[in-house]
Nucleic acid binder design. Structure first.
Length: 299
DNA sequence: CAACCGTGGCT
DNA sequence: TAGCCAAGGTT
């Protein structure tokens, strides 16, 4: 047990892991024996998507496709349909492609190596490490928005994390991790859970925080955020994203090709509708057939 | 690096 | 209620 903090920083790992043992939510991917494939699917579903919306889709997904090869054997359009309304349906296409690569190039076993995971479509810096740590118990820093916020507050004394910089937070999280593998994995999960349940973006529950006594932000009197902020999300109403979503809803709900005349009904602006449809075709989320209809991808 | 990519919960 | 925010990734 080596929990010695680096660089004179306070030890947040020990109290957070102790807190996590009691406070951790009972989530599917924390069940004993949960497969690495399930962890991979869950992490992709969880990208920018709340836990409560993911859980039911995840369980249905794993029942239908218990291994990567099972998913690879279905058409990608079925993955898009099962994705339902989780949003960012390109993730479903990427997950299908990742499953195909795992089945064909990795013996149907989800890779354990971070670089091998990074080479899969739809898997970036966060997801690769999350799979290596949460599915395989390896020792890597896992940095998502929750972790960035906890570190910004507890260690740097900032109210909010700055814009996500290229891997700048990885060394900081690394400095928090105990040497021991299992303890490091638990610390990753605990910091993330604190950010999700207690050290939330708005109205953090500092009274219930297990590291309030060593929080730099609290010690500094909760200064307002000064540095650069993360960029604001683009307006959704009236956006191309909304139009894409409306077209995708049509395609998902139809067993037969959707005619142009039906797609024309989902949005009044011709140019924007055409732009959205073209981008869906480009992304492989929609396919045009010979008869001028559109479907989800069947191959 | 900035812009883009869905959908819904929460205050 | 309008806006913020969510276990990010790709281009």
């Amino acid at each position: 047990m080596d929990n010695a903090p680096d660089r004179g920083r306070p030890d947040i790992a020990t109290p957070l892991v102790a807190w996590f043992r009691d406070a951790a939510r009972d989530l599917p991917w924390r069940r004993p024996g949960f497969p690495a494939w399930g962890t991979l699917v869950s992490e992709i579903m969880l990208q920018q998507t709340q836990v409560a919306r993911v859980v039911p889709r995840l369980e249905a997904w794993l029942t239908r496709w218990p291994t990567p090869a099972d998913l690879a054997a279905s058409p990608p359009g079925e993955a898009v349909r099962a994705w339902d309304r989780l949003g960012y349906p390109r993730r479903a296409i990427a997950l299908h492609a990742a499953a195909t690569a795992i089945a064909e190039q990795h013996g149907n076993v989800v890779p354990r190596d971070v670089d091998a995971l990074l080479a899969l479509p739809g898997i970036g810096d966060y997801t690769a490490r999350a799979v290596a740590v949460f599915a395989y118990g390896d020792r890597h820093p896992v940095v998502d928005v929750n972790v960035r916020r906890v570190l910004a507050r507890a260690l740097l004394g900032h109210g909010q994390p700055g814009p996500a910089k290229a891997k700048q937070d990885l060394p900081l999280m690394e400095s928090v991790l105990p040497e021991d593998r299992d303890a490091a994995a638990a610390t990753n999960a605990a910091v993330m859970e604190l950010g999700a349940l207690v050290c939330v973006a708005r109205s953090p529950a500092c009274d219930a925080c297990p590291i309030a006594d060593r929080c730099a932000w609290r010690a500094a009197g909760y200064p307002e955020h000064d540095g650069p902020r993360a960029p604001k999300q683009a307006r959704f109403a009236g956006s191309d994203r909304q139009v894409r979503g409306l077209i995708m809803a049509e395609l998902r709900s139809s067993d037969v090709p959707v005619l142009r005349s039906e797609i024309d009904l989902v949005w009044p602006d011709d140019a924007q509708r055409e732009r959205a449809l073209a981008s869906l075709l480009r992304d492989g989320l929609a396919v045009g057939d010979d008869a001028g209809g559109y479907t989800l991808p069947s191959v």
